[in-house]
Each structure stands twice: as structure tokens, then as C-alpha cells.
């Protein structure tokens, strides 16, 4: 028996919104420690890895590990039936071919349940090595979203260049060029407004705007985003979920042909 109850059900809605652009289907791996998911987009350019720790749920029971393969478009249709202040419970029997979502209003006066068919998915699991990144940039997530949106109007790719002074995002296209520079700025009133750079050595990497824009669907999940970069390895874009876990995206860089 698997059962996970989240009073802050809106969080689950936001998590789904943050991945459904990239993934049509994925397997939620449920274990005693929590729920995790790892999947590549269909073009094998980016990867989503997320973790929701069991202690972040208000009630969590997982007698044995279960893999819940879901069509995320269909899951999103069901999640749209939950209000933002609903309590959400996910339930599945061991070896079940369906999953049940229960939505309760805070006053318990309305309780809805939706049963969805599960899928058997061939999951390609990738081993991601621990990496000491050359540059780690922490910045406001809305700022990152804004920059990705703005520069995608200029070109298909963004070059992210990081030095210890700051981080620069650049795009070029038929109409011209655009550059956005952010200086390191840790002395701000609110912690979430800080731009902090930890640099071992400068890096400059090129990434596809389309994927960066998809990653920014996670913006409502966290006030800050962390970009981890090293030369010639995938970028990691991480949104930390308070007291719960994380949503991480990996994106292969564009390389000179």
C-alpha cells in the first residue's frame, strides 16, 4: 500500500506544471524515503530529476517500493480538478494498475476522488556523477525566468558566461544581439533577491533557449534558482522545495560542430 497526503496540495500541482512541458510520461518511484522521478525529454537533450522526501508529506506510507508510470498530460488533467487550497492524497495498492488522487477542501465538506490508469514504461535511468562545478550561480528565480524569456526573442541559444564579478547571458540572432549582466549582490534586504556566485574558474557555455524556458516553469516552486556549470558538461538548474526536496533539470550544452 502506498499513500501520501499533502495538505499543501498546490505544491504537487506546481511540481507537475514544472515537468509536463518536457515529459509526456514518466515513472514516479515511490519508496519509504519519498517519491522520486528521473526522465529525459524525448530528444535526449535534457533530463528532469525530482525528489519529494517522505518527511515533507503530512502522512506518508509506503510498505514496499512501487513504480507508478503515468501519462503526465492525463495526470495534469486530473490535477486541474484540484483547487489550490485542496489537500491532495495519492494512493496505490501494491501491484495496482491504477492510482487514485483524492482532493479534500480544507473544511472537508467536499471530497473528490479520481482514479487514473497506470502505464508500464521502459525507464532509461541515467547515472549522474557527482561533479565539482566550476561555477555555481544562485539568483532570483523570477529574474532567471525573465532573462530566458527576453533573450529567446533574440536568438535560439543563450551563452551563459560566469566570472567572479558576475554572470552574463547573451543571445544573437537575425535582428541583432542582447546581453544581460548580473553583478554579484549578496547585500540585499531579502535573501531571495541575492545574486551569489561561487567560482573556481570562469566558464562560458551555450544552451538552447527552448529548454531553459521550459525549466522556468518551476519558478513558482522556489524564490531562488541555482545554476551549476562546468566546461563541457551539462548545466544543472535546481529549484529547492522548502522542507521537501528539489526539482533539477540537466541540459546538455551546444558544442561547436
Amino acid at each position: 500500500m502506498f499513500e501520501a497526503r499533502l495538505v499543501q496540495g498546490a505544491l504537487l500541482k506546481k511540481v507537475l506544471e514544472s515537468i509536463k512541458d518536457l515529459l509526456n510520461e514518466a515513472t514516479w518511484e515511490c519508496a519509504a524515503t519519498g517519491i522520486s522521478l528521473q526522465a529525459m525529454d524525448s530528444s535526449h537533450v535534457s533530463l528532469v530529476a525530482l525528489n519529494l522526501r517522505s518527511d515533507g508529506f503530512d502522512k506518508y506510507r509506503c510498505d514496499r517500493n512501487v513504480s507508478l508510470g503515468m501519462n503526465l498530460t492525463n495526470m495534469a488533467k486530473i490535477m486541474k480538478c484540484a483547487s489550490n487550497d485542496d489537500v491532495i492524497t495519492i494512493k496505490a495498492q501494491d501491484d495496482a494498475d491504477t492510482v487514485t488522487f483524492v482532493f479534500e477542501t480544507p473544511n472537508q465538506e467536499k471530497i473528490s476522488d479520481y482514479e487514473m490508469k497506470l502505464m508500464n514504461l521502459d525507464t532509461e535511468h541515467l547515472g549522474i556523477p557527482d561533479t565539482d562545478y566550476s561555477c555555481i550561480v544562485k539568483m532570483p528565480s523570477v529574474e532567471f525566468q525573465r532573462i530566458c524569456r527576453d533573450l529567446s526573442q533574440i536568438g535560439d541559444s543563450v551563452v551563459i558566461s560566469c566570472t567572479k564579478e558576475g554572470v552574463k547571458f547573451s543571445a544573437a540572432g537575425d535582428l541583432g544581439t542582447g546581453n544581460v549582466k548580473l553583478a554579484q549582490n549578496a547585500n540585499v534586504d531579502k535573501e531571495e533577491e541575492a545574486v551569489v556566485i561561487e567560482m573556481q574558474e570562469p566558464v562560458s557555455l551555450t544552451f538552447a533557449c527552448r529548454y531553459l524556458n521550459s525549466f522556468t516553469k518551476a519558478t513558482p516552486l522556489a524564490p531562488q534558482v541555482q545554476l551549476s556549470m562546468s566546461s563541457d558538461v551539462p548545466l544543472v538548474v535546481e529549484y529547492k522545495l522548502e522542507d521537501m526536496g528539489y526539482v533539477r533539470y540537466y541540459l546538455a550544452p551546444k558544442i561547436e560542430d
Partner: peptide
């Protein structure tokens, strides 16, 4: 023009 690389070039299938 730079070309898009594949993630599996970096991470092994396990």
C-alpha cells in the same frame, strides 16, 4: 553554429 549535444554523451545508462 554550435550544435545540440545529447545528454547520453555525458551520463551513462544504468
Amino acid at each position: 553554429t554550435p550544435v545540440q549535444n545529447d545528454l547520453q554523451e555525458y551520463f551513462a545508462l544504468v
